[in-house]
Design a binder for these strands. Structure first.
Lengths: 337, 337
DNA sequence: TTGAAAGCGCTACCAT
DNA sequence: ATGGTAGCGCTTTCAA
């Protein structure tokens, strides 16, 4: 039965109503077992009657714990990071923390702004999807002494911690898969934007294996604008124009692969007979009841959960066994290769 | 050249360094033109030298404006709301606000928790993807006097404001499209979860038009578990088993439609000759260079931007012309119908 | 144009 | 088991 005051009920008002002091109300909220059961119940009743909602900002100011974790994500659309953010938010919620989100659209200038804005909230931790930052961003982060977790890649020298997998190894694994399937003239289709860092790593691993195999050739292309599917389609067109004998393409994302698939169909090519097509990410649409696309599955939600746990642990004084957590990946062979 | 103090630089330290009082520093930050240019520059220099980052929580406590907006989203995965959250965050950022995010996984109990947690931050506004809430959630929200925007549907009696489109009308529009394409024995495939509210509305509009047409029949099915694509596939299987003469299916999401498409292929059916398939959402994979799926396009990013702007406006004292903003939708006819 | 004092709502610290 | 006091870092209000 919340009483409408037009403003917010304060802890003092709850205390008065319960006939105790503010600090006792605070204890009922933060460490209930330090309060005698009878008192506790009286306070809880007052809280309920008044519809009291503790002001976390005030609490954080005092305790120097904001219970906020910031996530700086390149973009939610494209669905790459969506499940990671879900996992992150979930684990934080379970531990009484909240998630502050900012998007950068793959711009390191916007990343810098987002980081600055988040630091203004004195977050208990920060999660970044990018692993390349402006120098000043990195310095600011290092100076902040806040636990920082870079995700979706394993940088050699992380700012704080890293949770993800090796994009390079993933590219290499796909190369081996295609080699084993008998493919020899393979192309890589990526994007040419700023978001291409991870794609570049996938390409590097892919190309290295092929070169070392001594039996296969590599070709690469990237389209710079348009939707991802359009880029995939144009990418495949470009590849086939230049290297008509290509027998397999590895796309830097499932969405690109879908574009390539549609282009192949348009050209009357049969997949995988005429050409094999593989993607990256194992998005839902790539699955068994969708495209049936060969791809690389990465542990999206786990990355978020582990990143959150790392921050919680560090703040609880636990020293993590390692600054880097490799969650691996898995090549999923389906019907397109 | 941030000086490493191990802690955080305060406004007082900046003030001391610049030889002014705290309030002057505050003014340089919040209303620079109230400070003489020379002083302003001195303060700005001090800020830069010390690497000062204002504590927004302290500022908010004092000014009673948190510059935080909360978004309570059912889920990011599935990509339905991803672009909306991007749009929301973007517009907020442009106006110096930050986005607090919580997921509910379509549970109204978790929605209640998320709302309570957010109220603890004294947000300047709240955005909810759900339009069905627990009674106590709704009461709490109403009592909070915070601008609340429900999105992705237009409830008859919104808590505060609503930004979206009519799911019912969208279903009706698709029915008309399929009727015009000569289809007569149509099925609806939805999901049976708690997330089915909007799907239900789409179905209602769809069914109503078909019934009123007098020439077409409606069938409906829903699969309760598994991935969306799996549900789509099983949905189509169920429909064809029970009503083998079905000549069109309208799926409550593009992902379901993809599942249906894969099932149709598996059964050797030609789309759209043997059966027409339509989806909802116009996800990227449905597009021209993807599936080429007939679907309903909804203004995802716009919904986020308009919701953000509404909150900003209300807090700026502007009275919005209407409590409800209908952003519409569009039937996109492609190759599957 | 600038400043001093008071206070936002809470928790840390030290008592009792 | 409970409370008093001080103070977190900022902005508001009122003065100068």
């Amino acid at each position: 039965m919340a009483i409408e005051t037009g403003g917010w009920v304060t802890m003092g008002e709850v205390a008065e109503r319960a006939g105790v002091s503010k600090i006792t109300v605070s204890r009922v909220l933060r460490s209930p077992d330090k309060v005698k059961q009878e008192t506790r119940e009286r306070v809880r009743a007052a809280i309920a009657e008044l519809g009291y909602v503790p002001d976390e900002a005030a609490g954080g100011l005092s305790s120097r714990r904001s219970r906020i974790v910031g996530a700086v994500i390149s973009t939610l659309a494209g669905s790459t990071f969506a499940s990671t953010v879900d996992g992150l938010g979930d684990r934080l919620r379970q531990n009484g923390h909240q998630l502050l989100l900012a998007g950068t659209d793959y711009s390191s200038a916007r990343e810098a702004d987002a980081v600055a804005a988040m630091l203004g909230r004195r977050p208990d931790g920060l999660v970044l999807t990018s692993t390349t930052h402006r120098d000043d961003t990195r310095r600011t982060l290092e100076a902040s002494r806040i636990p920082v977790v870079e995700i979706w890649e394993l940088p050699v020298d992380p700012i704080g911690y890293a949770v993800g997998f090796s994009n390079r190894d993933a590219g290499a694994a796909m190369a081996r898969h295609l080699l084993a399937a008998g493919r020899r003239r393979m192309a890589f289709i990526g994007t040419a934007g700023e978001d291409d860092r991870r794609g570049r790593l996938r390409y590097d691993g892919f190309a290295e294996v092929l070169e070392q195999s001594g039996v296969a050739e590599v070709r690469a292309t990237a389209a710079a604008s348009g939707t991802q599917t359009a880029r995939g389609a144009r990418g495949l067109a470009a590849v086939l124009e230049r290297w008509p004998d290509t027998d397999a393409v590895f796309c830097s994302s499932d969405t690109l692969a879908l574009g390539a698939l549609s282009e192949a169909r348009r050209r009357g090519l049969t997949v995988p007979e005429d050409i094999a097509i593989a993607g990256f990410g194992d998005f839902e649409f790539a699955g068994e009841f969708g495209l049936g696309l060969t791809t690389v599955r990465v542990p999206g939600p786990d990355i978020g959960e582990v990143a959150a746990q790392l921050i919680l642990d560090v703040n609880a004084g636990l020293e993590p066994p390692s600054r880097t957590v490799d969650l691996g990946f898995q090549v999923i062979a389906r019907a397109t290769t």
